[in-house]
Amino acid sequence: MLLFGGQGVHAGNISIHDARTAIINDIVHLDLDLDLEFNPDVIEALRSGIAIEFAIDIEFNRPRWYWLNAEVARGKHRFRISFLPLSEQYLLTNVVTGDRQTLPSFDDVITALGTLRSLPLAEVSNFKAGRKYRCAVQVRLDIEALPAPMRPLAYFSRAWRMASDWFEWDFQL
């Protein structure tokens, strides 16, 4: 298995520091290192009981010189952060797998979300050995997951517009 590191590009207040693929039990997994900066407005909303979701979109493309790139596989992960007032802890949920982590502080949330490990993406059978693929990943705050009354404002507010640029690297079996 070959790993190619990509260049992290400036992405507002989420930037993808590094992204790697690893194959475990014939499934391609993703390791993701993120830098996250939250606006105080977002933290206030979180502590007021608003759940915040981050969406991670992953695409595997086969480059074609004669035509548009062919899409080979596509993956999606969602992480939800919510505040538990009783225990004053944060709950980080992987919406896709259902895994939950209880975290004592918001810094722990940032740390946990900043080092995502072994996110299952696609089966190895989707890929041909020896062929080069292009992977791309983007992480963004999903405004549509917010309560309806917040959405119109969130779309026009810099505080809520959190999205990384697409982070690209080459992948080969």
Binding site: S48, G49, P85, P149, M150, P152, L153
Partner: peptide
């Protein structure tokens, strides 16, 4: 009991937080 209290409070604080946004939303 604790869960209920927590849920109620969570709902209430969410509503408090959304108060202005709700007004704005309804106005819109």
């Amino acid at each position: 009991l604790a869960r209920n209290v927590e849920l109620a409070l969570a709902k209430y604080t969410e509503l408090v937080y959304l108060r202005d946004k709700l007004k704005l939303s309804f106005s819109m």
